[in-house]
Design a protein around this nucleic acid. Structure first.
Length: 591
DNA sequence: ATAGGGTTAG
């Protein structure tokens, strides 16, 4: 904190230099205080003279600004006489409590002073124009913001530390950007620490600070903590605003706690003395919550209320409504409101179109979905990756891999390089219908377009090979993926284990199972089921039973398949009693 | 020319 600025010449009026010198002086005196505190900690001497502080440079230019700052400084001077406890006789007794009281007070005072100084530095930073260093630090502030916005919070924090070391403290909004960056990456501990620092040393947090923090806890699904912070806001003297309310209402809706959301909303509206309707965004959040909870009646009554009260409904509110109709498969109503929206002069955005496309795909209406997709460009809404994703996913789910492939080609012709998922979907779809040639050629094309295959890609190919009974091919794919630096996962192993079992190679299956364990994965229900199947096929019923018991012991949620396999095996062995017992067990398994 | 709030696929 040594020097704010290198230039030493004095200037004539309330110049930056005067201010900076003042601050330097303040910093020096602060250092002096801290030294004093330490001196006291070590020798427990409490009765020193309050006027012993020296102020350093006396050649400051007189100015009203300086006077102001001096006055401010005095207000925060350490006054030794105030620190002593009311007991008069502690001096010689060395009452430890008194000493700690004194030290506490001194530290608190010092922190207050530092906070005040930091705030005045930020003030100065805004207030002074034309000082080159100020410009440099203003740039730092923008860099901090930009870094936070692109998710490089660590770098932003580093820059902040660097600035503070030079004696320039970023303003509240910069701190809020930092907090937002931390909260979005789930780093709530550091966010908490940053807020504490703000409270103690400035710049003082404002409502946006707390809103950001509350939102952060909502994002990691810790709504209780969010509500707690909300409840402590009152103590800090900052009143929650509409935004605070919307964050909490949204979080509660997401948890399905619509009643609580309504209650909170009511409380806040009451406090605000605003008996009028909640604002558009709040209503939108609530309406969305009702739709997603399947309560269409409440959702629509909220919508009607908005219409009746002549609320200026916007695109997002329409999107939520249309999405609600799509969720409940009321596609005609979705369409009707889409048209109504156009008539009102509201231009649909990518959300609107994607929502409609999703609804249509879920209904198997691909021609209409593709029509909307085609219309998007004409409505000046460029289709985004999500639009493509929905359509290709829908076509694959419907088993229409040919059209999905055509659509992929269409994207490539239009210079859109799809994300890996889209390629994987089509590879998987070809594999499932036994078209290995196309599955592999899509993989090659993917690579040619610079999109790296991932574990999912390989799993789709392994699946294709396994389906075709080519276990050697599947096995060599596993080797290939390792060579590419990809790790086989549980799905890969399950596919290979399943194939080995089907072909009766139970030893190979068990070997793969061991390999799965050594790779650090836990076998899942599919792994065990495949092994049970393999053992049963070979007539190793005892081993199969042991595995069955293992699933139960591990507490893995079991479906009907392992039961079915064992029951069938018992029947084949004419062990009807055992078969029946297991069937009984199956019927009672969830009780 | 300032930070914080609502909608789409896995």
């Amino acid at each position: 904190m040594a020097l704010l600025i290198g230039c030493g010449e004095s200037s004539s009026s309330a110049s930056p230099i005067v201010l900076i010198r003042y601050l330097n002086r303040a910093v020096d005196s602060f250092k002096h205080d801290i030294a004093h505190i330490f001196a006291n900690i070590f020798c427990c001497k409490t009765n020193f003279d309050s006027n012993s502080r020296t102020c350093g440079n006396e050649d400051l230019q007189p100015s009203s600004f300086e006077n102001l700052m001096t006055a401010m400084g005095e207000q925060y001077q350490l006054r030794a006489q105030n620190w002593c406890s009311k007991q008069k006789d502690f001096d010689d007794e060395r009452d430890p409590y008194a000493v700690f009281n004194v030290l506490d007070t001194m530290l608190k005072d010092s922190l207050e002073r530092l906070k005040m100084m930091r705030e005045s530095i930020s003030l100065a930073e805004i207030g002074i124009r034309g000082c080159t260093l100020e410009v440099k630090y203003a740039e730092h502030v923008y860099i901090i913001r930009d870094l936070c916005l692109v998710g490089k919070v660590e770098a932003a924090l580093w820059l902040r530390r660097k600035m503070i070391r030079k004696g320039v403290v970023p303003d509240v909004s910069s701190y809020n950007y930092l907090l937002n960056g931390l909260c979005k990456t789930g780093n709530l501990e550091q966010a908490d620490w940053l807020i504490r620092e703000m409270v103690e040393m400035g710049p003082s947090p404002n409502c946006a600070t707390y809103n950001t923090f509350i939102k952060g806890y909502c994002l990691i699904n810790n709504v209780d903590k969010a509500l707690y912070i909300f409840s402590t806001m009152a103590n800090t003297g900052i009143r929650p605003n509409k935004v605070t309310c919307n964050i909490l209402v949204h979080a509660l809706c997401k948890k399905g706690l619509l009643d609580d959301a309504g209650k909170i909303l009511g409380e806040i509206l009451e406090e605000e003395n605003d008996k009028a309707t909640p604002d558009l965004i709040t209503s939108t959040i609530l309406m969305d919550g009702y739709f997603k909870n399947g309560d269409m009646v409440q959702a629509l009554s909220l919508w009607n209320e908005m219409v009746q009260k002549n609320t200026q409904i916007d695109v997002v509110a329409y999107n939520v409504l249309i999405h609600g109709f799509c969720l409940s498969r009321h596609m005609r109503l979705a369409y009707r409101h889409f048209c109504e929206m156009l008539k009102r002069g509201l231009l649909p955005d990518a959300f609107t179109c994607n929502i409609l496309i999703t609804g249509l795909c879920n209904d198997g209406k691909f021609d209409e979905a593709l029509y909307i997709h085609g219309v998007m460009a004409r409505m000046e809404v460029a289709p985004d990756p999500i639009s493509y994703n929905i359509i290709i996913r829908g076509l694959c789910a419907y088993g229409d891999v040919v059209r999905a492939h055509e659509f992929l080609l269409y994207m490539l012709e239009n210079s859109i390089v799809p994300e890996p998922q889209i390629w994987n979907l089509i590879i998987d779809c070809y594999g499932r219908c036994g078209d290995l040639g196309n599955a592999f050629s899509i993989r090659d094309q993917m690579t040619a377009f610079g999109v790296l295959p991932n574990t999912f890609t390989y799993n789709a190919l392994v699946h294709a090979q396994v389906k075709g009974g080519n276990i050697a091919g599947a096995y060599s794919l596993k080797k290939e993926m390792i060579l590419c630096g990809l790790y086989p996962d549980v799905v890969t192993y399950n596919l290979l284990i399943g194939a080995a079992c089907t072909l009766g190679h139970i030893r190979l299956a068990l070997q793969l199972h061991d390999e799965l364990l050594t790779s650090g994965y836990d076998p899942d229900i599919i792994t065990y089921t495949e092994l049970i199947r393999g053992h049963c096929m070979r007539g190793n019923v005892k081993e199969a039973e042991e595995l069955f018991a293992k699933i139960e012991k591990a507490g893995l949620p079991m479906d009907h398949i392992p039961f079915k396999i064992l029951i069938k095996t018992y029947c084949k062995m004419r062990e009807f009693d055992m078969s029946f017992d297991l069937y009984q067990k199956y019927l009672n398994k969830d009780k």
